[in-house]
Nucleic acid binder design. Structure first.
Lengths: 248, 248
DNA sequence: CGTTTGGTTGAAATGTGTCAAACTTTGTGG
DNA sequence: CCACAAAGTTTGACACATTTCAACCAAACG
């Protein structure tokens, strides 16, 4: 956590550009952001509920999950984040964290002081809009997850999650040949979908038996995309991927 | 929907000021926003999933819910909104709506063109921050609801929802003497919490039997706040109410 | 190479859903 | 302002998706 690297923010820039078009100047502003990066082991908390961090971070490599603990120690994972995502961008304005964020895999993270982000927002309204839009897409994902957990049965919930993660991985170039690295355990899937790991296991077998996916050795392969979408009641609109933003 | 009223945005201003401190100039900018208002009957869609609205709205009076429809016509209500809230503020940047928004009660709404909001964001970074913060608090509520639906049992989910709505109503002056107007039906509670209306009914009776609340004739009265919080595993931090924002 | 972590299977317990009917309150048109 | 209709609430019996507990197996790891 002590090396300073001027180009480390490239993954964050790419991700932001999938969210909003940026001018050369604005791109440079992001690339010039003072970033401190750190390698973190798997299954470590990066930040904890109640923290008041003075910096945000983005993912250079690896996967994280955001979670809350409910009564009885039950854990709800509210979202997964991958390359380029900024899991706690919200902390720029919501001073006290209402969630914890942990690594799923070993991860390389880039840390940026909130002040630096706020300065950019003052200078470049378009960057401000981009950051806002990033958090809005996160919120859209939360809404869709709520719908999944509240209304869909277990196999459908799982199919839906797999569809989402696959598209998001694809968008950042983490998919080849219909397959992606899938480091999430069945327990974690359960924590994300409000299911026991036992039931996740049985439901996954259903999806496998229907020849929709193969999932083993931490690799997810889509065997039948249309079938998986149908099983998961999945429609990608909520990810707001190809959408052209309105203006400056 | 044809009267123009220069001071109609007052409830929105009050709400924004609970989110971020504003200067005199910024306050005036909000008050001078060109607002068109409209009275809408209960149980009407204000906007629908797939719409690309050119304006956002805030609630002058009444209550709305944001919902999604899943396979089989099952409805998930993802949030309720009340006085001063801007339920589709997100539409300023997420052009295509991924949710529908309907009135719960007859409501008076104020509509503002997105362009006007974007102009203010350019002029006043602090307002930009305030809008962003408003949507971030919405997202925090989504996260907490996910945790409720995913991890808590029915009576606890309901108690949690009641706590939240009570505090939010209190913050905008809609509570007196431990009671608030409660126009939400048991079916709607079920749609919000992923429960059948039958089970909502039985769980509400539990809360009543424990002398935590009284709920009848569309009035919710809190009989034992501490008990209700405990039953709902509720802690208000996620509402980010008294939190002082960091800076400009 | 033992130890840990994650995956799989079976059987029993249970929270919640579904269906159906009755009851109560609210709203409305005559 | 009544009478009726519509909407919301309550109750009972039964079905079932999912959880829990417990054991075993397989893969990853130091």
């Amino acid at each position: 956590m002590n090396v300073l690297n001027p180009s480390a923010s490239a993954p964050f820039l790419w991700r932001l550009q999938s969210v909003i078009k940026l001018s050369e100047v604005e791109q440079q502003a992001i690339l010039n952001l003072p970033v401190r990066y750190a390698d973190i082991k798997a299954d470590q908390d990066v930040v904890r509920e109640g923290d008041r961090p003075s910096r945000m971070f983005f993912i250079i490599n690896g996967m994280t999950c955001t979670y809350k603990i409910a009564a009885g120690g039950r854990r709800q994972i509210v979202t997964f984040h991958m390359q380029g995502d900024a899991p706690d961008l919200q902390s720029v304005h919501l001073t006290t964290l209402d969630v914890s964020i942990a690594t799923i895999t070993p991860a390389t993270l880039g840390f940026v002081e909130h002040e630096a982000i706020l300065d950019l927002c003052q200078l470049y309204p378009r960057l401000s809009a981009g950051f806002w839009r990033h958090t809005l897409i996160d919120a859209a994902i939360f809404r869709e997850w709520m719908t999944s957990i509240g209304q869909r049965q277990a196999p459908s919930r799982i199919a839906h999650l797999l569809c989402e993660l696959f598209l998001r991985a694809q968008a950042v170039g983490l998919v080849d040949d219909d397959a992606m690295a899938f480091p999430i355990t069945q327990i974690e899937i359960g924590d994300a979908l409000g299911l026991s790991s036992v039931h996740v296991n049985r439901s996954l077998q259903e999806l496998r038996n229907k020849k929709l996916i193969s999932l083993r050795d931490s690799e997810l392969r889509i065997l039948n995309w249309d079938g998986l979408q149908a099983a998961g009641d999945f429609s990608p609109n909520y990810l707001h991927m190809k959408e052209q933003e309105r203006r400056a």
